[in-house]
Design a protein around this nucleic acid. Structure first.
Lengths: 158, 158
DNA sequence: TCCCGTTAGATGCATATGCATCGGATCAGA
DNA sequence: TCTGATCCGATGCATATGCATCTAACGGGA
């Protein structure tokens, strides 16, 4: 693990490379988690993002692209594009909002509801797998609270 | 926060949407961290990934695409593509390995070394910002250990 | 020396993300 | 009722990622 770091690295760069960068650490963990969950969902033809979007479409009273982006804390454009494959595959439909023509109200198709249910089962399997392999110091619940806190770190400001 | 979840959500789906999915939580945190660090590095014309790759090029004795991918725990193809912008901008060079013609040995240019040093300073600023805003239960060090553990969760197996 | 299994890097393909921006629609005021 | 500030969704552009696959190159054993 120690790796073959050259001697003329500043302490700062050594820190960055040895797992002490919050950003790189979380991103590395993210890549791993996504691979694990996506693999679990692959048989159902879904990614974890797509499963989440289907779930929000079902869970929100009047789901729109913007709302989904807000709840998932991602850019509206990313949500917009993420939804396209789901429409293409006929899992969700899009209809103009009756009152506000700017909005499109999304809805699950029957096929979408089926895939969502199947995906949720596969998702639960992945969840259990992570729980079985992880034994964090303060407990998984605490870890989740802290990761979520990381997700709320202020955007910049200075 | 509670959101407007419809009543007919299975407990499973409710879990998935309310921040209890390890994958979605870490990914959300990852998005936020990347935005924060990328913003801090934007003035230097670098992303956090690019900074890390420059650092590995400097830190490894004989840096190659494969080695960087291994150390960053990402796919070789992702590393390969990530390095291209850095070459295009003249921050690193690529030369054929003397013994093994399959490999390309990467190296920092003077400009690359300069940008790396500048970027490291901006990175440290972002690190301090996260530290100032986060007060996790078990301490940041413990949190990092646990996030890194998440990054080592087995790839599948079942 | 020849052949096969392995390794390195590059590419095609598809999703994931964010920023800037555009055009259309809405809405709150003047 | 007109108008300027907002909001909504879509796009262009660029990076980020992973998987499968292809070609070239290596390496060891027959």
């Amino acid at each position: 693990m120690g790796a073959e770091l050259s001697e003329d690295m500043t302490p700062e760069l050594a820190e960055l490379l040895t797992g002490n960068c919050y950003c790189l650490a979380v991103r590395r963990a993210s890549r791993r988690m996504v691979r694990l969950y996506d693999a679990a969902l692959a048989e159902r033809g879904l990614t974890i993002s797509q499963l989440a979007m289907l779930a929000w479409v079902k869970g929100l009273r009047t789901p729109t692209v913007q709302k989904i982006a807000d709840y998932m804390e991602m850019d509206q454009s990313a949500a917009s594009r993420g939804i396209r494959p789901l429409e293409r595959e006929g899992l969700i439909t899009s209809a103009p909002h009756p009152k506000d023509k700017r909005k499109s109200v999304l809805a699950l198709t029957d096929e979408g509801a089926t895939r969502l249910a199947e995906g949720a089962a596969a998702w639960a399997h992945a969840q259990r797998q992570v729980e079985a392999e992880m034994s964090p110091a303060g407990g998984l619940a605490t870890l989740m609270t802290e990761i979520n806190a990381l997700a709320q770190t202020a955007e910049a400001e200075d």
